[in-house]
Design a binder for these strands. Structure first.
Length: 472
RNA sequence: GUGACCAUAGUACAACGGUUCAGUACUUCGGGUUGUGGUCCCGAAGAUCUGGGUUCAAUUCCCAGUGGUCACCCCA
């Protein structure tokens, strides 16, 4: 029979087999599994976030993954990209408009109002850890489901709150050995921002600048002029560099607030860069806005401490020239949001860090991680009698605090020791028929291969001698 | 949303318009007689993303879809 027919037959067989197995349904675009190997990084990052937040007096809360679509439309803003084009939203069986949360703040603010947290001592400091969703096109460090570590300080007008938030953010990165620089700016309050926007619009109307703007920016000029500063088109960037800076238009209150924030940061030696072009993509921000950018050593980013004096003295510092990289985190003040969403007038500020990006950085830097899943002792058995006895021993050792591993389902000693080896344990305890009879057990040092017979009753003492007392 | 590149076992890679070419390595599983892992030897399992088209013949060429990677936009 010619081969081509044979081949075809095989192919048909394969199809049948595949059909019997059932069709494999793969993961959704931009979604990611976190495998045990990767979870080591997550444990590290989550632990750091939790410890740090707690030690600064933030308390954890969770909010639902699903919220009313309206919540985000109202809070994050109709002009924000997050709301207009990146939201996972749908109509449920009840005809309700639902969204998977694209960020944490609106849900937290909703919870603050709904649970009457304004009756708690103010400010209310909260932290939040969990998945958020944005329907973006996946790319390096960008997923459709990703995780944020979020801090909110609600009910505090003082610039100390802004500075503390930024400080905690900075320490988070520093303690994970990731070099970052805080990009910071103030976008004023609704009053002074209005003045600034007039200046900005006038600027773009002068000397035919408007005609040189890119297509998107022409729209921005009408819809959200602040975003003009944020454009990456060459012509727009050049114009933005000459445009009036918002820090020069701040009202006294906003200006003083901002100076205070910077003074605190100077005092704490937190490296930041006054970035007059930083605006942010969510509509609810006012006054302080900031982002966390990786400080690429190779890009020779200039750190500019002492910005407070500069700002107090004259125009703000040099324009940020470095290429914009993926932000690791960001935040700012949102004094109007709580009231806007139906609460009392309440000042607040918050920030969020993208954990996948943090983990990406940790991996890039090859920061060694210890494998805390490793066991110290492996229990091997031969024969059913021994197996029963050793299953009890497992409980005893586990309760004594030892890190014990086993492969009770395997029969041969060979395969059990093989498993022990792969688990990287220090010692194996081997129990066979003979030892059961004698009331003994073998202890094998897995590195040297030396093994000794010990009294079964003295196991715990022997292990404590070799490994130390786990209870201590 | 726009653009570029890509798509073969669990992983990393080969190969080819048909022909003992779907191969190699790692991993996994089993074995190298009685109760001993790491090395070695033997064996097994395991893949051409989906759908069309061109062709006598497609895993290979073309198109579309899907997915991946990267950049832009935007952000975390």
């Amino acid at each position: 029979m010619p081969k081509m027919f044979k081949k075809k037959e095989n192919k048909e067989d394969d199809k049948i087999i595949r059909a019997r197995r059932g069709k494999f349904v793969s993961r959704l675009r931009g979604m990611k599994d976190v495998l045990p190997e990767e979870y080591r990084y997550w444990n590290l990052v989550i632990k750091k976030a939790t410890e740090l937040a707690k030690s600064y007096g933030f308390k954890r809360l969770d909010t639902p993954v699903l919220e009313s679509l309206e919540l985000y439309e109202r809070s994050s803003g109709r002009s924000s990209d997050v709301v207009t084009k990146e939201m996972f939203s749908f109509v449920d069986k009840n005809d309700d408009r639902i969204a998977l949360r694209p960020e944490a703040t609106p849900g937290v603010v909703r919870a603050y109002i709904e649970h009457g947290m304004f009756n708690l001592p103010q400010p209310v400091k909260l932290f939040w850890l969990g998945p958020v969703f944005r329907h973006d096109k996946p790319q390096a460090g960008r997923f459709r489901q990703f995780s944020q570590f979020d801090l909110e300080n609600i009910g505090e007008t003082s610039p100390v709150a802004d500075a503390e938030l930024i400080a905690v953010t900075y320490y988070f990165f520093r303690e994970l050995q990731i070099d970052v620089v805080i990009q910071i700016n103030s976008i004023g309050c609704s009053v002074c921002r209005k003045d600034y926007l007039v200046k900005l619009e006038n600027f773009y109307k002068e000397r035919g600048r408007r005609a040189k703007l890119c297509h998107d920016c022409k729209k921005r000029l009408v819809k959200n002029p602040l975003r003009l500063l944020d454009c990456k088109e060459k012509a727009c960037v050049e114009m933005a560099a000459e445009a009036p800076q918002i820090v020069d238009s701040l009202c006294d209150d906003c200006r003083n607030h901002f100076i205070k924030v910077l003074e605190y940061l100077d005092e704490l030696d937190i490296p930041y860069n006054l970035n007059p072009l930083l605006v942010r993509g969510l509509d609810y921000y006012n006054r302080t806005v900031f982002e966390v950018w990786p400080s690429a050593a190779e890009a020779a980013v200039e750190v500019a401490p002492g910005g407070a004096e500069k700002l107090a003295g004259k125009a703000a510092g040099e324009r940020a020239e470095q290429p914009r990289q993926n932000a690791l985190g960001g935040g700012g003040r949102y004094d109007g949001l709580v009231e806007y969403m139906g609460g009392r007038p309440t000042a607040a500020c918050g920030m969020a860090i993208g954990l996948e990006r943090v983990i990406m950085k940790i991996k890039e830097k090859n920061i060694p991680l210890k494998d805390d899943e490793k066991g110290d002792i492996f229990l091997a058995q031969l024969g059913d009698q021994a197996r029963r006895k050793i299953m009890k021993l497992f409980e005893v050792l586990r309760k004594a605090g030892f890190n014990v591993r086993e492969a009770f389902t395997k029969d041969s000693l060979k395969s059990q020791l093989e498993a022990a080896d792969k688990m990287g344990v220090k010692y194996s305890l081997i129990l066979g028929q003979k030892e059961v009879m004698d009331g003994t057990i073998l202890i094998r040092d897995m590195e040297s291969g030396i093994q000794e017979i010990i009294d079964y009753k003295k196991i715990v003492a022997e292990l404590e001698k070799r490994l130390g007392n786990p209870a201590k």
